[in-house]
């Protein structure tokens, strides 16, 4: 009896404390997302908004070749960027957790975190400075007389977008993997060694399955936001490297067709969430097969 009363007053206190930040999120995130959803079913008629329900925007977003090309290209770029960043981040996180001496770990984490927080816009822009027609690479190579004309394959294309985005998101992928690796119980590894496993077997049977939750977190943190990147395609993508976010901006601003923009934004979100969902499901099956889950 006493205990239940206590719990109830605790629950009340917790609810009253979280109510303000939760209300803020509902008001400024959940409600606007709902309104965005409503908007995607309406039609823009020059300056007025026709609020009769229609699926025309979604039909256009999914069937018109322009939008479909942009959507699939964005998805393809996000997948490549995610595979690259997570693939490169994994050995880095492994080094930080298993190879680096303990007194160096904090410094390494800090070294990885700094670029994480320093001006996103400038970091992307620097790649334009490096890869552009008059950029560091071309300017320097031409200045040294190694090439006569700027290399055109290094910039204003999808390669430049993938390179730039991968660089921008690398730190975001390292930290979640590192955090999970730090929790791997080292005595399992010793036990496996005592029982005669080779280092590679130990890695495959213990470290990899146990660090998978970090890989999943890193994948989601990189994959989902990347599909909506606006700055990189605009700066280094050229016409061939534009992504869906650039079209969303055009619909909202220049084309003055917010409903179509809303449908494109939500379609991209649904697409990326479904792919992420499939990945999480596959990972669960892998962990079950490994007996780690």
């Amino acid at each position: 009896m006493m205990k239940r009363l206590q719990l109830d007053s605790d629950a009340r206190r917790g609810l009253s404390q979280i109510s303000l930040p939760f209300a803020f999120s509902v008001l400024l995130l959940a409600a606007p997302l709902t309104i965005l959803l409503a908007m995607s079913f309406w039609t823009q008629d020059f300056l007025t908004l026709d609020r009769t329900f229609t699926l025309a925007n979604f039909k256009e977003a999914w069937t018109s070749p322009v939008y479909r090309t942009l959507m699939l290209r964005s998805l393809k770029i996000s997948i490549i960027v995610t595979v690259l960043t997570v693939g490169l981040a994994y050995p880095a996180a492994y080094y930080m957790s298993f190879v680096a001496p303990n007194n160096r770990k904090a410094l390494l984490v800090f070294l990885i975190t700094i670029p994480f927080w320093t001006s996103y816009l400038m970091r992307i822009f620097l790649w334009k400075v490096i890869l552009g027609f008059n950029g560091v690479v071309n300017g320097s190579l031409m200045g040294l007389g190694i090439i006569d004309a700027p290399l055109d394959w290094i910039s204003y294309n999808q390669f430049a977008v993938v390179l730039t985005l991968s660089h921008a998101w690398l730190p975001f992928a390292v930290l979640p993997i590192f955090v999970v690796m730090e929790k791997v119980n080292r005595s399992y590894l010793e036990a496996a060694q005592d029982l005669g496993d080779t280092p590679f077997q130990r890695f495959l049977r213990i470290t990899l399955p146990l660090s998978m939750p970090g890989v999943v977190a890193a994948t989601l943190i990189v994959f989902i936001p990347t599909i909506g990147d606006y700055v990189t395609p605009r700066l280094v993508g050229g016409p061939d490297g534009l992504m869906i976010a650039n079209m969303i901006e055009i619909q909202f601003k220049n084309a003055n067709n917010a409903p179509l923009g809303a449908a494109l934004a939500l379609s991209a979100l649904v697409l990326v969430s479904s792919v992420a969902g499939i990945f999480v499901w596959l990972n669960r099956r892998y962990l079950k097969a490994e007996g780690a889950a």
Binding site: P225, A265, L269
Partner: peptide, 25 residues
């Protein structure tokens, strides 16, 4: 807490356009 943490996993453009839609409407 999931709702409050959600912006960490959402593309920023989604947050941008949804707030813009509210302001416009």
């Amino acid at each position: 807490i999931g709702t409050i943490m959600l912006p960490m996993f959402l593309p920023e453009i989604i947050i941008g356009v949804s707030l813009l839609t509210v302001v416009l409407l």
